[in-house]
Amino acid sequence: MSLNRLAFTATVHCLSGCATGEMLGMVIGTALAWSNVQTIVLAVILAFLFGYAFTMVPLVRAGLAFGAVLKLALAADTVSVPIMEIVDNAIMLIIPGAMDAGLDSFLFWGSPRSRS
């Protein structure tokens, strides 16, 4: 696999992982009726965990050593995930009612949090 393709694949996986973690955190926090702060904290933690994990998969499959993969994922995602999370959560706070929307609401699923 070419280096450019590998980088593209890792980036797509990072974005997918971040979005997956973000959505899972929002769904869990909303379902448990947690406060906005608790829900956001959970979503951010899960975004990091899933982002790192999803980034590492194609690199490990490409045959890179786990230690090198971990260093690459930490270096790349520690910058990109916070930027995505800051933008996503800022938009969520700007959209009236988005943070208070229930799981059965279009606003919950149609707002940026469902597309991180």
Rank of each mutant, 00 (worst) to 15 (best):
M1I: 15
S2L: 09
S2K: 12
S2R: 12
L3V: 12
R5L: 08
R5E: 05
L6Y: 01
F8Q: 11
T9H: 08
T9G: 03
A10N: 02
T11N: 08
T11G: 12
V12S: 12
H13S: 07
C14S: 09
C14Y: 03
L15Y: 11
L15D: 01
S16K: 01
S16C: 06
S16G: 09
C18I: 02
C18P: 04
C18D: 07
A19N: 09
A19G: 09
A19T: 14
G21S: 00
L24N: 02
L24E: 01
L24H: 01
G25W: 14
G25A: 12
G25Y: 14
M26Q: 13
V27W: 02
V27M: 10
I28H: 02
I28G: 07
G29A: 05
T30P: 02
T30G: 08
T30E: 01
L32Y: 11
L32D: 13
A33Q: 14
A33G: 13
W34Q: 12
W34R: 13
N36G: 15
V37W: 04
Q38I: 11
Q38E: 15
Q38H: 10
T39W: 05
I40V: 10
I40C: 04
I40R: 06
L42G: 03
L42F: 05
A43G: 04
A43W: 12
V44H: 04
I45E: 02
I45M: 07
L46P: 03
L46R: 07
L46I: 05
L46N: 01
A47T: 00
F48S: 03
F48W: 04
F48K: 00
L49T: 05
L49H: 02
L49P: 00
F50W: 11
G51A: 05
G51H: 01
Y52R: 01
Y52F: 01
M56K: 03
M56R: 00
V57P: 03
P58F: 10
R61C: 14
A62F: 14
A62S: 12
A62I: 05
A62V: 05
G63F: 07
L64I: 04
A65W: 06
A65K: 08
F66L: 08
A68K: 15
A68C: 09
V69C: 07
V69N: 04
V69M: 02
L70P: 06
L70Y: 02
K71Y: 07
L74D: 01
L74R: 04
A75D: 14
A75I: 09
D77V: 12
T78W: 13
P82R: 06
I83E: 14
M84C: 15
E85W: 03
V87M: 08
D88G: 11
N89R: 06
N89A: 04
I91A: 12
M92T: 08
L93T: 15
L93G: 11
I94L: 15
I95F: 14
I95H: 11
G97Y: 13
A98W: 08
D100R: 12
D100W: 10
A101S: 11
A101R: 08
A101H: 06
L103W: 09
F106Q: 11
F106T: 15
F106P: 13
L107G: 10
F108W: 04
S111H: 02
P112M: 14
R113C: 09
S114V: 02
R115W: 15
R115A: 13
S116R: 11
